[in-house]
């Protein structure tokens, strides 16, 4: 009697549910939460992957904050990159998607062209950009010279390396452009028609109709691209001299420095401490973003 009551329909269904999600749960525990917890513990040790793992308390963190100039350099470089690349790529993507949202003949071709860079990725693109940005023979400086501008040394001048990367990122805004475009196409034509009747111009329509209605996508884009920008690694690894963040440490981004510590100095505990600091920084920024969101993100059908 009792037993029957325990094995109710509800329980059976929830068990089934758990079994169905088991592969994911097991994967999450084994491959995400497990390593996460391990890295938290190991950040308090002198773990070197192969032979050593002694508890050292807060020594790694202490060293990072008080005795490691390169840590601060890498943090500065990364913040610089985030602060400029996130707003610029967001604005760039909105601008392009506005243009792509016109109904002109041949628009599909333009959309394809602007989306194409998002499909290409990885080392090939970086090598291509290294050629484009070559100070002597690169296409960018060649074009600038047509207008009488003496182009900078891009990847060889510490003041220009980060702008070079941001410039490169702007070229590949196609991915988020697609999101904005989809959301713009979802905006009801009635709103624009009504605005036309009221005599609103293009700018007013953009400011008061388009922009508010795509804020959820802007919000999503800002959060993901902020997190993504903090993790910048490959670009610097491929495009800096010897992959060590040069010239003059100007491309020594946070994750690159972490990688050097982990896999060249084998100071894995130290690198794990770094990864936790980055985690906390990104977490705080994301929470701030989430808290600010209700003030400017507009959800349709939301009365507030």
């Amino acid at each position: 009697m009792k037993k029957k009551k325990w094995w109710t329909m509800g329980r059976r269904e929830s068990l089934q549910g758990y079994i169905f999600i088991a592969p994911w749960v097991i994967g999450f525990l084994a491959f995400t939460l497990g390593p996460l917890a391990f890295s938290l513990y190991a950040s308090f040790t002198d773990y070197n992957i192969t032979s050593r793992m002694d508890f050292v308390g807060l020594q790694n963190y202490d060293q990072l904050f008080t005795g490691d100039d390169l840590f601060w350099t890498s943090l500065y470089n990364t913040l610089y990159f985030v602060i400029f690349s996130v707003p610029l790529t967001t604005i760039g993507a909105i601008f392009i998607s506005m243009l792509m949202n016109q109904s002109l003949p041949g628009m599909r071709i333009f959309r394809t062209i602007f989306y194409l860079p998002a499909v290409l990725s990885g080392v090939g693109v970086y090598l291509l950009w290294m050629q484009l940005l070559d100070p002597g023979t690169g296409l960018v400086n060649t074009i600038l010279s047509w207008f009488g501008i003496n182009g900078p040394n891009w990847l060889f001048d510490p003041d220009w390396t980060k702008p070079s990367l941001i410039f490169m990122k702007l070229w590949s805004v196609g991915g988020s452009m697609l999101l904005y475009l989809a959301s713009m196409q979802g905006i009801s034509k009635n709103l624009y028609e009504a605005a036309d009747i009221d005599g609103a111009g293009t700018w007013k329509k953009f400011l008061h109709i388009t922009l508010p209605l795509i804020t959820p996508v802007i919000f999503f884009d800002i959060i993901t691209s902020t997190i993504g920008s903090f993790q910048i690694f490959q670009e610097a690894y491929v495009m800096s001299q010897n992959g060590s963040g040069g010239p003059a440490s100007s491309m020594l981004f946070y994750n690159l420095y972490m990688w050097i510590k982990a896999f060249q100095s084998f100071d894995m505990g130290y690198a794990m401490a770094m990864s936790w600091i980055l985690f906390v920084v990104v977490l705080i920024i994301t929470i701030i973003n989430l808290k600010l969101a209700p003030k400017w993100v507009h959800y349709e059908g939301d009365d507030k």
């Binding site: 390169l70 060889f156 510490p158 060590s244 963040g245 440490s249 020594l252 060249q264 100095s265």
Partner: peptide, 18 residues
């Protein structure tokens, strides 16, 4: 001091570039 060059190279760059 396995990664000492990372402390030297930026200075060498600073001499030549900056």
């Amino acid at each position: 001091a396995p990664d000492y060059v990372n402390l030297i190279n930026p200075q060498l760059d600073a001499i030549l570039i900056e």
